[in-house]
Design a binder for these strands. Structure first.
Length: 489
RNA sequence: CGGGGUGUAGCGUAGCCCGGUAGCGCGCUUGCUUCGGGAGCAAGAGGUCGCCGGUUCAAAUCCGGCCACCCCGACCA
């Protein structure tokens, strides 16, 4: 552990704060490969919990897991014109194998549309084979120029769903349905509220008809694209000859969708909830829910307190929505470390609830519970400590979402505002600005060049303003849409 | 690829301008005292000063080259 006991404050230097939290909470570390990261057990524990829940949600919507190759023939990427244009600049390419130059270079997948739909083409003949609903958990490589732990690394872990359908309507429904699954997960589990909506043409996935996204606000008021869902139309079906015979006997191209979330979600989790004392993990994603810090002076007290601590640990039962059905509790019995030092160490790691138990507590048949998010302390009788902990975990989970949503709304601006005011906001504190847009790419580009702010999404109806802006933020022409503007990661 | 910066013990750093025995804090080891919000004292272990070359009696320090990483831009989940 480093000696510097204070993290940089969020307000003073958000980036430095973020890096310190990720490194010192031991979520990840820099690998000896440029732009690559090592996910340490603490970080991977969170990812495993995310995976398990998402996987359950995918199964519930009828998707099955499969696995496709890491290496893709370069020619596959080239079959869809827009796709190759979008991804070619950021691919890593294998040109040697077995000591010989390869006849055809192999691209390390930046995403798997091409290899997957080439297989779908073999598997689908009839409308009876559809819909085909597949998900893959995998790693991908995109040769980014500048990287940031979890948010943008050369290699990252993700899941990519790929489906094929009989009609455009069914594909569109699937695209929207999975966006909803993502939203439920992000809000229900990460306690990270999101704005959903459609991406503009300039931010659309390379090769898609339409792209939808979940956008979350980080504590520096910047937006994080936390998950995307694409309606691919028939673009890939045509490129890979993915056809089926319809109920009426016609041969038709299938309609595809793809959608994905990545380990970027861990970065989002950190930047949404954590504070100047370190990480804050929502209870539903915490690898350990409770840490017990025993307090004692003498050997005699030590034996007594530790014995009670372990008995409490063993008695703690299940919490809602949990699997396996038992709270994960750690007793921090390290010698030679004062309780205060342990408190700081576990706060840095974001464990949701800390239990302090000492001789005085045992005499009074109680223990002190401290919640990580607010650091509020309260004593509870040991007779019902399990219930108290379960209630506290539920409260923390709910409060984190409420707090994040309130923060987002407090930093959102709606209605017609002047462009000067907009620039001022983006230069200073940043915000989610819901402003009118004339629909032209020229206005979009110029605003991006001048302010670094981009249209994150054209928000879905429930996120639009009660009194929508009437004029384009930049040119003043009548607005054709309400756009969510923000600087983004 | 442009602009800026940094490489010294596990981590963080001083020393570099002005060459002369490589220092400090944290962590680690051992012992004693501590223990309800980051413990104290004592004794220890730990270094090819990023790499290669040059200048010099002498290089962490000066000169040349290389490498790596970080920050700011262009690119992006």
């Amino acid at each position: 552990m480093a000696d510097d006991r204070k993290l940089p404050t969020r307000a003073a230097d958000f980036s430095a704060w973020y890096n310190e939290v990720v490194l010192r909470a031991e979520l990840a570390d820099y690998a000896p490969v440029r732009g690559c990261m090592v996910i340490r057990p603490n970080g991977y524990g969170i990812w495993e919990r995310m995976q398990r829940q998402l996987d359950d949600m995918f199964k519930a919507t009828g998707h099955q897991n499969a696995y496709f190759p890491l290496l893709i023939p370069q020619s596959f990427l080239q079959k869809e014109a827009e796709h190759v244009e979008g991804f070619a600049p950021e691919t890593a390419v294998v040109t040697y194998g077995g000591g010989k130059q390869l006849e055809e270079p192999l691209v390390i997948r930046p995403t798997s549309e091409t290899i997957i739909y080439s297989m779908f083409a073999k598997w689908v003949q009839s409308y009876r084979d559809l819909p085909l609903l597949i998900n893959q958990w995998a790693n991908v490589i995109r040769w980014e120029m500048r990287t940031r732990l979890f948010l943008r690394t050369l290699e990252f872990l993700w899941q990519e769903g790929h489906t094929a359908h009989v009609s455009e309507q069914e594909a569109e429904e699937e695209t929207r349905r999975m966006l909803g699954v993502y939203r439920d997960f992000m809000e229900g589990w990460i306690a990270m509220p999101v704005i959903t909506g459609r991406k503009t043409e300039s931010e659309r996935f390379a090769g898609a008809l339409r792209t939808y996204s979940c956008e979350a606000m980080m504590q520096d008021n910047k937006a994080l694209q936390a998950g995307t869902s694409h309606n691919l139309g028939q673009n890939f079906a045509r490129a890979f000859d993915l056809k089926f015979q319809s109920e009426s006997g016609e041969i038709e191209y299938a309609w595809n969708t793809s959608w994905g979330v990545s380990t970027r979600l861990i970065g989002g989790l950190v930047m949404t909830h954590s504070d100047d004392n370190g990480l804050v993990v929502p209870p539903l994603l915490a690898p350990i829910e409770v840490v017990i810090v025993p307090i004692y002076r003498t050997d005699e007290e030590r034996v007594r307190v530790l014995e009670s601590a372990h008995r409490i640990k063993d008695s703690l039962g299940a919490w809602e929505r949990r699997s396996p059905a038992r709270l994960r509790v750690h007793v921090d019995a390290r010698e030679g470390m004062k309780p205060g030092a342990k408190y700081y160490a576990w706060e840095l790691r974001g464990i949701p609830v800390r239990m302090e138990i000492g001789p005085r507590d045992l005499d009074a048949n109680q223990a002190v519970l401290v919640r990580r998010d607010t650091r509020a302390k309260q004593s509870f009788t040991l007779d019902t400590i399990g219930e108290a902990i379960n209630d506290l975990l539920s409260t923390i989970q709910e409060d984190l979402l409420v707090a994040a949503r309130e923060r987002r709304e407090a930093n959102s601006v709606r209605g017609n505002i002047t462009y000067n005011r907009f620039r001022e906001i983006m230069e200073r504190e940043g915000a989610f600005v819901y402003a009118g847009w004339c629909g032209s790419a020229e206005c979009e580009t110029r605003i991006k060049e001048e302010t670094k702010a981009t249209i994150r999404v054209l928000p879905d109806e429930e996120f639009r303003s009660a009194e929508p802006p009437t004029h384009c933020l930049l040119c003043g022409k009548p607005a054709v849409a309400e756009a969510l503007w923000a600087k983004a990661y």
